[in-house]
Amino acid sequence: MPATPESLPVDQGPPAGPADIRLVVSDMDGTLLDDDKRIPDGLWPMLAELRRRGVLFSPASGRQYATLARQFAEVADGMVFIAENGTYVVRDGVELSSDPLHGRVVAALARAVRELAADGVDVGAVVCGKRSAYVERTDEAFLTEVRRYYVENRIVDDLTAVDDEVLKVALFDFGSAERTTAPALQAFTATHQVVVSGEHWVDVMNATANKGAALRGLQRELGITPAQTMVFGDYLNDLEMLDAADWSFAVAGAHPEVVRRARHLAPSNNDNGVLRTIARVLGI
């Protein structure tokens, strides 16, 4: 008898499959990647097996599309990339959906970050466009963090004058993003998403934009149901995505709110939790 989500207590691993899964979606940092930001070696044969079975695998990340496309370059044909926390969805180089910010909001956020920095917060902004990411801050420590997630990046004199469709504004706080930078952006929360996406990152997007909205749009496009969807996440920017799948997993070590929201638990990112769970549920 196939496994069903209802048969999986949140505090136990899933039973052996197979289950009728058509779409597997995984967050990257803290979920699929280990703590050293490495893709597990077992992912490549797993992707080949999923493709053989007609199961689509989709990375869903706060990373930019160019970064994801480079990471999965050898297997990118037909793959759907949910980039920039759901604000940009691309398949085979063709945009499926996007949700760009208004220029006035981008400028206001750039000014807010400048004020935070002037008040002594060690923070910098990344304006995330479709063509590139843009930064004003030029110190190597900040640029090193930016390059981890944005392979296409440019230093500009003025972030309020960026000429690109801006998908989100990401803020990197060398301290605690949840305790310092996110509360300082309270003025934007009434009209926009202000999401803590990692220990040091806060993303600001349109109120309509999140990984879950992107996933639901993809499910409609492909005719795939939540019952046929498996999702993995670890941080607050994954919450809405977890809601869009019956097979929703928080990896061990995930943010407490993610653990509460997910239906089930998977082993940690350092224990190949995503791959082990896929293999078990699908009977691979």
Rank of each mutant, 00 (worst) to 15 (best):
S176P: 10
V274F: 02
L185Q: 02
D92E: 10
A107I: 00
A244G: 03
T67S: 13
V24A: 02
E95C: 15
V169M: 01
A209L: 00
Y134M: 06
Y134H: 07
Q186C: 14
V135Y: 01
V202H: 08
E136G: 06
L159K: 01
D246F: 10
A250Q: 05
G42H: 06
L56H: 14
G129H: 00
I284T: 04
E178T: 08
A190M: 07
H255W: 11
V195M: 13
D77T: 07
V162N: 04
D173A: 07
V162T: 01
P40T: 09
E257Q: 15
N206A: 13
G103H: 08
V121F: 12
P267M: 15
P226T: 09
Y235T: 10
A76T: 06
V274Q: 00
N272V: 02
P267Q: 14
S26Q: 00
D139T: 15
M28F: 06
L32H: 03
A117C: 13
G17C: 13
P14N: 10
V195N: 09
L265C: 14
T191R: 10
L167H: 00
P59T: 00
R137D: 13
S197A: 15
D77C: 05
R260Y: 03
L143I: 10
A207P: 02
L56W: 12
A279V: 13
P18M: 10
Y134W: 09
D246M: 12
Y149R: 13
